[in-house]
Design a protein around this nucleic acid. Structure first.
Length: 198
DNA sequence: CTCTGGATTAGCT
DNA sequence: GCTAATCCAGAGC
């Protein structure tokens, strides 16, 4: 980038662009697909961690039997009803956390579960948080991601558009060959192909 | 208040 | 492939 007075010229495409509200407040299935290849950035007191999203699942809200919002709003799922761009983190199986990106407009409870990311920055910190697991097992699961990025219910409800500790970036990656399969670990709506990988 | 089972993981057979 | 680990949200009474 070349800066000349008040004018700015870009010598290459703009990258490292933080995702805005407009990205998140769209239909859940569209946001889910578009999240593939984006980068999740976690700033902790111990350092910065970055990973590239390569597997997600869409949960469509009050009309989706597999969604936590299927039976309406509760204290736990309240962040799902906020505007797109918030985080929804829940605790499961007595030991794991899972992170969702809330979608759609305020009052519509869509969300996208982040199931796998590729470690990009902060590998030493990731390894420390995950302790003694093989490098190819560091962040290939929703519970593993939260452990690696030090995310728990304290981050649930966080606004990813304004937060200084957790946000997403578009670094210009172009994704092709998106695969659609049934969602993992659910008992209902297994006919819906709302898991996206590439 | 009590009960059930879960958007998972690691370790073992 | 099988399952223990371990908490708590949500439902039902």
């Amino acid at each position: 980038m070349i800066v000349s007075g008040e004018r700015v010229f870009y010598s290459e495409p703009v990258i490292n662009k933080k995702l805005t509200r407009a990205f998140y407040t769209r239909p859940t299935l569209q946001v889910a697909k578009d999240l593939l290849g984006k980068f999740i950035v976690r700033q902790t007191p111990q350092g910065k961690i970055v990973g590239q999203i390569n597997e997600v699942e869409a949960y469509l809200g009050e009309k989706d039997p597999a969604s936590h919002a299927f039976r309406g709003q509760t204290p736990r799922n309240a962040p799902m009803f906020l505007s797109g761009g918030h985080a929804y983190v829940y605790f499961i199986y007595g030991m794991h956390h899972c992170m969702n990106i809330v979608t759609e407009q305020t009052g519509r409870a869509g969300a996208v579960l982040i199931r796998s990311i590729i470690p990009i920055e902060g590998l030493d910190l990731i390894r420390k948080n995950r302790h003694q697991v093989k490098d190819n097992q560091l962040t290939n699961g929703p519970g593993k991601i939260c452990q690696a990025l030090a995310i728990d219910r304290q981050q649930s409800g966080l606004d990813l558009v304004t937060s200084q500790e957790l946000w997403l970036e578009n670094r210009g990656a172009q994704i092709s060959k998106i695969q659609k399969t049934p969602r993992i670990g659910i008992r209902t709506a297994t006919d819906k192909l709302w898991r996206f990988t590439y």
